[in-house]
Nucleic acid binder design. Structure first.
Ligand SMILES: NC(=O)c1ccc[n+]([C@@H]2O[C@H](COP(=O)([O-])OP(=O)(O)OC[C@H]3O[C@@H](n4cnc5c(N)ncnc54)[C@H](O)[C@@H]3O)[C@@H](O)[C@H]2O)c1
Ligand SMILES: NC(=O)c1ccc[n+]([C@@H]2O[C@H](COP(=O)([O-])OP(=O)(O)OC[C@H]3O[C@@H](n4cnc5c(N)ncnc54)[C@H](O)[C@@H]3O)[C@@H](O)[C@H]2O)c1
Lengths: 207, 207
DNA sequence: AAGCATTTGTGAATGTTTTCACGAACTACA
DNA sequence: TGTAGTTCGTGAAAACATTCACAAATGCTT
């Protein structure tokens, strides 16, 4: 069972490997990969030992094989249906980001409470009201919910998603959500990243 | 010296405390705070013991005092100058997000390479070309750089920021950056969050 | 003022993640 | 085939993070 930190590193390894593939490099050692990512080679070997594919002693890992295993483990071999809740600035950026579609993530529903937004069309997807969510989750095979509404609305929206049977939620609202434990929740808090930076700047200034 | 995990939790405690303040609740125990955030009370006590302010045995912590210490530690007592590099979809969402300004983060420069964007005005800030960055960093007192350009351009842009003397960088491009170690770098990778979700869904499906 | 009920702050214990270090597996070449 | 040179996979050690558990501090009641 992969833990959060391992998964995060695997995602990065996968990106680097895909870059190597484009450049026609077909093998790489843990040492070289570590060099490129400022990580120890043993960290990389241990992480990779958790995904199926094995490296070859004396040679390293085969780029193509490893990408294949990583795509499998990370769930990039199939398509996922996403519902976006909140068609605001952030929601629009997420929706129109081509990288998601490329990796198999499809926004199949866009929900907003603002009557002036309902009915608009975003590249073929019509924005609908929150009370259509439950039906859409069933009809459009929604696997994940992406919450991009203001904090005040986040809990309610999360509840609706869970009620509709969604088992994975990505939350951008800066408020902690309390969901049943069989729902996998990620919280991406952009303001937290800012505060992390300013906290460090403060600390280094003091010295 | 605060570590990354502690800082992330402090940010969340601070949010909850600010919510309590609005609701006129003036004290809270570690137990109650833990309850609300699904954390152990000892975790909270240990985290808070690292910021100056002390709690009072038998009573708990005073909301106002604690917010004050946390704002201090997290760098929310002063203003920070930000440069946004990349005025695309994500850049616009970040720029217009009122939460940042409220916490003291001011976008004072917006840079884009696209000639059709240069010269446009975003609430008083004129979008300028990359070669103005160095000058702007000096003139506008830029403390942090926010990278929201495509992956291909990210390394170069990061180099320019560092060259201009910026000591903190928030990177949204899905590519690892290799910066000098006195520059504090955070990498926010939205696709990584997606992959984390799909990875978990895959795993639970298998069982 | 004494006793009881809370709750903190923190050493010590426990749990988790990363790094070390080395035997085994593989390649290359004579 | 044998020997030298890589690099992997993984137990064991070290580093790091969380939780436990309890003495000490404080408030409240009588
Ligand atoms: N934009 C950023 O850079 C940024 C940064 C940090 C955090 N966030 C967080 O992300 C979330 C979205 O940010 P944004 O900038 O897109 O905000 P926004 O105001 O541009 O968009 C929010 C959208 O949600 C809709 N909405 C409100 N209540 C709703 C409900 N109950 N159901 C469905 N839709 C509803 C609104 O009509 C609006 O379209 C917020 O919680 C914000 O705090 C955003
Ligand atoms: N939008 C999302 O939801 C999302 C999700 C995950 C990752 N990202 C990443 O965030 C970054 C920005 O995404 P976006 O959706 O805003 O892309 P975008 O294409 O909308 O915007 C990118 C902007 O950067 C500008 N640019 C290009 N090269 C530049 C340079 N050298 N200097 C200055 N500006 C330059 C472009 O002109 C454009 O305006 C990308 O790296 C993307 O991979 C975005």
């Amino acid at each position: 069972m992969l833990n959060k930190h391992t998964i995060e590193r695997l995602v990065v390894y996968n990106r680097v490997l895909k870059d190597l593939r484009v450049r026609n490099i077909s093998q790489i050692t843990s040492e070289q990969l570590g060099e490129r990512l400022s990580k120890t080679s043993s960290q990389i070997r241990r992480d990779l030992s958790e995904v199926g594919k094995k490296g070859r002693p004396g040679v390293g890992y085969f780029v193509e094989e490893l990408i294949d295993s990583l795509d499998e483990v990370l769930g990039l071999k199939r398509k996922w249906g996403l519902a976006l809740i909140g068609a605001g600035n952030l929601g629009r950026a997420l929706f129109y980001y081509p990288g998601f579609k490329k990796e198999g993530y499809e926004f199949r529903a866009v929900i907003d409470a603002d009557p002036s937004k309902i009915g608009r069309n975003w590249s073929g997807v019509t924005i609908t009201s929150p009370d259509t969510l439950k039906k859409l989750v069933r009809e459009k095979n929604i696997d994940m919910g992406v919450i991009a509404v203001p904090s005040e609305a986040a809990s309610e929206v999360a509840g609706t998603l869970v009620g509709a049977g969604v088992k994975a939620v990505l939350n951008f609202a800066p408020v902690p959500l309390d969901l049943p434990e069989d729902v996998y929740l990620r919280h991406t808090d952009l303001a937290m990243d800012m505060e992390n930076l300013s906290c460090h700047l403060c600390e280094t200034e003091k010295k």
